[in-house]
Amino acid sequence: MSFTNFFRIIRESFTNLSRNRVLTITSIFTVFLTLVLIGVFGLFLLNLSYNASSLDELLEVKIFIVTEADIDTINAFNERLVLDSRIATIEYVSKEEAFESTKELFDEDLLDLGLGADFLPASFVVTLNNYDDVDYFVAEVREMPEVYKVVYHKDSFNFTSNYSKWIRMISGVLGAILAFLAVLLISNTIRLTVYSRNDEVVIMKFIGATESRIKIPFVIEGGLIGCIGAIISFIVTGLVYSKLYSAFASTSGEEMFLTGLRMAPLKETLLMIFFGYMVLGVLLGVLGSLMAIRRHLKV
């Protein structure tokens, strides 16, 4: 197919779509709804995993030792950790090291406030081998007299493992239903254009047009519906995400530090949404037209 032919087909596809305006708009709207729904859940999950830290972090448990513990107690505690088969790695953070890293977080000199390394507890950062062991391990360690506090990513772990499963499932089901609807509606739109252009198809057939030459314009029409739906979805989702992103970026550093929340980087995320929407939109459109062609176009 030459370039001139290709552009002619594209031009004709636009003309044909504008002939069945109501159906075309309905199909575009369904693609839009489908993509936005999938996109919003996708973005939510993306930001969740962006914040929920890496899997290693979820396996990480910080054990703070009481400040009055002496070196022998700490060594004995270390021995017990070493013998524990559930543990993969152990890292010891002494009072001094904790003091140094804390100093970096604050502008003011802690020494000026009359605070020294003694006020901070020494700690062990251990990584477990298995998620299932995290809760039991933490419960056991908490009972030990030399342990002051145990910190681990229980909340985020539970959230990602429990809620995200539901979110994924609900968005998956809703997305699938909407995608199915979109394919059906597009198929219906293309079916009507197939009917309205029956004479054209018959003429093409008897003039000796190849099967693909007859079918491709309809597939392109479906693809265009998907493409337009994807562009609209991208504009809407992109605008909302950018607004949220700038609103988040303007919150104070302190707030960010306390909540620990970050948003997935704007540029990369927008690019991802754009390509994701385009691929999915065009796929829905093409699927819809193929369905209509298969059923209603006899070549």
Partner: peptide, 22 residues
């Protein structure tokens, strides 16, 4: 063969009762 049909159809011309003009 299916793919030969267009070649065959190019060797014939068809005229219909209802003209079938676009």
């Amino acid at each position: 063969d299916r793919y030969q049909i267009p070649t065959f159809r190019r060797s014939i011309g068809v005229v219909f009762q209802d003209f079938k003009l676009l």
